[in-house]
Amino acid sequence: MYKVKVFITLRESVLDPQGSVVKNSLHSLNYNEVSDVRIGKYMELTVEKTERNIEEVVKEMCERLLANVVIEDYRFEIEEAVAQ
């Protein structure tokens, strides 16, 4: 069993309007040291072991559904979980 954490954000080249608004709000709270905010999605997947390579499977899931690679970047972390 694996615990997979998937992080999805808008690509660097794509303007993130939510991020800009939150950055401005942080500035209005005097956190002027904040130079950029990117807002994204976080997903946790619990995945059974199969004969397929887990990295390959997660990458495929990201490309096909979880992220829209036209505008989004993704990265993931895979942890092996001990069955309860």
Binding site: L10, V14, L15, P17, Q18, V21, N68, V70, I71
Partner: peptide, 17 residues
């Protein structure tokens, strides 16, 4: 249609949110 790849590109949230 964009998600299905029948048309190119993607949608972002409106600039004004």
């Amino acid at each position: 249609l964009l998600e299905a790849g029948l048309l190119p590109g993607a949608m972002r949230r409106n600039e004004t949110l």
